[in-house]
Design a protein around this nucleic acid. Sequence first.
DNA 1: CTGTTAGCGCTTTCAA
DNA 2: TTGAAAGCGCTAACAG
Lengths: 316, 316
Amino acid sequence: MIMTQKLTILDIAKLAGVGKSTVSRVLTNDPKVKPATREKVEQVIRESGYVPSKSAQAMRGGSAKVVGIILSRLDSPSENKAVSGILDVIYKAGYDAVIMESQFSAEKTNEHLAVLQKRNVDGVIVFGFSGCDLSRIELLGHKAVVIATDTDTISSVDYDHQGLIALAMDKLVSCGKQSISYIGVDESDRTTGLLRLNAYLESCRKLGIEPCYRTGQLSYDSAYHITDQVLSEGTEAIVCASDTLAMGVAKRLQELDRTDIQVSGVGATDLLSFLFPNTFSIDPGYFEAGKASAQLLIKQLSGQQEITHLIQQASY
Amino acid sequence: MIMTQKLTILDIAKLAGVGKSTVSRVLTNDPKVKPATREKVEQVIRESGYVPSKSAQAMRGGSAKVVGIILSRLDSPSENKAVSGILDVIYKAGYDAVIMESQFSAEKTNEHLAVLQKRNVDGVIVFGFSGCDLSRIELLGHKAVVIATDTDTISSVDYDHQGLIALAMDKLVSCGKQSISYIGVDESDRTTGLLRLNAYLESCRKLGIEPCYRTGQLSYDSAYHITDQVLSEGTEAIVCASDTLAMGVAKRLQELDRTDIQVSGVGATDLLSFLFPNTFSIDPGYFEAGKASAQLLIKQLSGQQEITHLIQQASY
DNA sequence: CTGTTAGCGCTTTCAA
DNA sequence: TTGAAAGCGCTAACAG
């Protein structure tokens, strides 16, 4: 057996001495096939190494059993964990995934969407980003789910930005911390920036804490450089909008010999607490969010589910 | 325009007042179409929002313009960078990618291979791992390329494990270091383990350095715990088989107040040198390796290229 | 239970 | 230059 032959269903039919449709029935697990016949056909299929053409099946049945995934960058830890979750679920449901990178470009996203449509994909899962254009996705109706985006027209799975930060704040307070600062990213980033900052402010209000914060870029370096600005004699903890920021903050604190200050991040990077003991990270549940979005999509595709909005629970 | 209509080539033909085949000719960029006719058809296509069905095209033409990618884990930084490179190249060539995770299981890999074959993918790129079963991939002949695997039967792009370590050693020596230890992973891992250790030993021989090494698991923790065992009064540098290990080593050195010792890793993680100044990382060229593998595959698919083995150059 | 017969949407001869 | 017609490989009625 050297070459992947180009056998068709007809070849198998002849080889097995039956009709095309009987072979098709075996392929589709149609119960009305005599066990003996089925056995024979299956044997021929096995021996010949025949592989039914998905393209033909897709064309005939209408469904290609493919879902498209558009993420911003494959090397984003949050996104690739979520994609793992998606893969996990859709694969078990017999779907495969076509993956594309938007690189944070609304234009690319739309291009990809067009390609996916050509491919007759059954559904699409899109990871949102600041400046993402949802209009084209809306046209997909129940065939689309977006992750990490705030919308009410498309099914979505979003992270609990509010809860994420609240969780960190509560934990810190329950450890006796009173003076808690915050390092975040600019409000131009709606989710990681604005939402998480607001969550901090809201928590402060509720807990009776005097807010002290600064925002910058989403990088170690940025966080490192603005750390001093939220520091005072009495600072007991610093909540960060992400693990990346937390890393920069922790390093700066180490330099300043202020490792008494507890630092929290978001992302569940085990590296953070390995390197800096007085540190913890909130897990937004990337993998779970991926799974949830895939489950949602699949249900929608089978018509069992209306447009829905899910919030992924965070945890330590 | 609310719904994605199910327009066919025939609808467009009618709308444009021409025959099916003329529309098809426009779609395939057949030069023998009168410009006026073409213009008209294109307009109708544009206005109607018609999208040709890839499934049908694939079935007719034989090629689905899809390449399958099997990687071990999406959250492996090395692999997802390489995949980005692959995506980059194949997308420009008009291919799309269906991605699957093997999770280091030879069994899953074969399952995925079978699925991809059903899908009529034009080619496959597989990321190897210890214990990977190449036999099934070999059957694919020129339709397959493997990354990070040592084989002579399948086209491959491999990292220059030897060069990686040699590069680090040379740099260290040129900085005046003489006493250079090594932290790696167990030899059960052929590439990151065995190959890189051998490279270290080989470099030591060439450079007249007394080897001093230890291997363990591929984790911060493991490296952290074995660091002391390669340390002596005069140790001037520690070469690590990966950035993950380097991170553990650097942390331990920091604790021991031995930051005079320079540490090198492999992976080009910018976090490493951000956190630990006396540190550098070799870049194995993941992204470039991905691009190279995709280019190789595409050339093979078009018959312009025989089975080939590429070594990805490393750099600082 | 099983074979025959239509197509699915598209590309590609083959004539016109 | 264009239209008509013949399939690509498969599934789904429709008869036996």
